[in-house]
Simulated assay, not measured.
Amino acid sequence: MAVVVSHDRRDLLARTLDGLAAQDRPCDAVVVVDNASSDGSADLADAHPLAPEVVRLPRNTGGAGGFAAGTARAVRSHRADLVWLMDDDTVPTPSALAELLRARSRYAGRPALLASRAVWHDGRDHPMNTPRRRFGLARPFTGRAAAVGGVPIRSASFVSTLVDARAVREEGLPEAAYFIWNDDFEFTARLLRRRTGLFVPTSVVEHLTRTFGSTDADPGERFFYEVRNKLWMLRTSRALGPLDLALYGAATLRRWGRTVLRSADRPLLLRAGRRGFVAGLTSRPEPTTTALAGLGAVSDDVRAIQEAVHRD
């Protein structure tokens, strides 16, 4: 089933739902998690012919909280075997889901997740959503992926990722405390530390961001979340092994350097980064059950999944 996280992008959400309704292989069900939108997004979803379940959150939990809530809803309440995650600015082409399922069914194994190719509205590959390839695999493993038109990956974004519910039950939900940024990196890298993930280029979605570029393109105040969450991940997550920590730590420093150099307002960016650095080193993300407490049935779904993981 599909899970769409939405916040104040009514027109884009309509296009996402239209894309889901036009799938060659229809979704078994759709959940829209509305993050306390003020523009009628939830009402639009309620009235859409696709008839999704609309989960109306009373407060904005960010993309991280929305995906944690939606995944919990899908896995526990709907007992979904596969969860197709996407933002409300993602428009899947008609064959997007069918291509993911085709690669999954033909792969000689059980991938924990499969990711689509994300393009901008002009057809260019979107740099914000390039999955990180998994290197160092023996030829038989890369050959299995190539046989189904796939590429082994180490992580992916939440712009069209098909996740096996069994991996969620074993590893838990996205870290809701991240709010925005790096939550998809942490979650997918955690699932794929000892599991298989595939990038499927024949599965195509449009990612309709306002501008073309990656998240290091002058984020302003939001740089706080990039720095805090990346440090949280490097310090506290079980997603990365020792070699990963060294590689991604070095890549992070290079990325932050590029971000500062490209910024049109470096003092603002540096202040946000400094706050993020302090928060990332002196605190830890609160548990997802705590971050998503007080949300009624959604909180029950979240708690049930997280407690089962901890018991195991």
Score class of each variant (00 low, 15 high):
Ser6Ala: 15
Asp184Cys: 06
Ala177Glu: 06
Leu44Phe: 07
Ala36Met: 02
Thr259Ile: 04
Leu234Ala: 06
Thr215Phe: 15
Met1Asp: 07
Leu82Ser: 09
Arg73Ala: 07
Arg194Leu: 00
Thr282His: 04
Leu281Ser: 07
Arg262Lys: 13
Val31Gln: 01
Leu191Pro: 05
Thr288Pro: 10
Gly149Thr: 04
Ala103Arg: 13
Asp265Asn: 12
Leu295Val: 08
Ala115Leu: 11
His121Tyr: 13
Pro287Met: 10
Ala112Pro: 10
Gly62Phe: 14
Thr290Gln: 13
Val5Asp: 01
Ala264Met: 11
Ala138Lys: 08
Gly249Ala: 12
Val278Gln: 10
Arg169His: 07
Gly249Arg: 13
Val148Leu: 01
Thr202Trp: 00
His121Arg: 15
Ser214Tyr: 13
Leu243Gly: 11
Val200Pro: 01
Gly172Arg: 03
Asp88Leu: 04
Gly65Val: 05
Phe179Val: 13
His7Arg: 15
Ala2Gly: 02
Ala308Pro: 01
Arg266His: 06
Pro174Ser: 06
Arg271Ile: 10
Pro201Ala: 02
Leu231Ile: 00
Val227Ser: 08
Val148Arg: 00
Ala74Ile: 02
Arg124Ile: 09
Ala36Thr: 01
Gly213Val: 15
Arg255Met: 09
Phe223Arg: 11
Asp218Lys: 12
Tyr178Phe: 15
Gly150Lys: 05
Ala167Ser: 11
Val83Arg: 12
Ala146Arg: 11
Ala69Gln: 02
Ala29His: 03
Phe277Met: 10
Ala279Arg: 06
Asn229Met: 09
Leu44Thr: 08
Gly143Phe: 10
Lys230Thr: 13
His78Gln: 11
Tyr248Lys: 12
Pro58Cys: 04
Arg284Ser: 14
Ala189Cys: 11
Pro140Cys: 01
Val91Asp: 01
Trp232Ile: 07
Val83Phe: 11
Gly296Ile: 09
Ala147Met: 09
Val278Tyr: 07
Leu198Val: 00
Arg134Glu: 12
Leu269Ser: 12
Ser38Asn: 15
Glu307Tyr: 03
Val119Gln: 07
Ala239Gln: 14
Thr209His: 15
Thr142Glu: 08
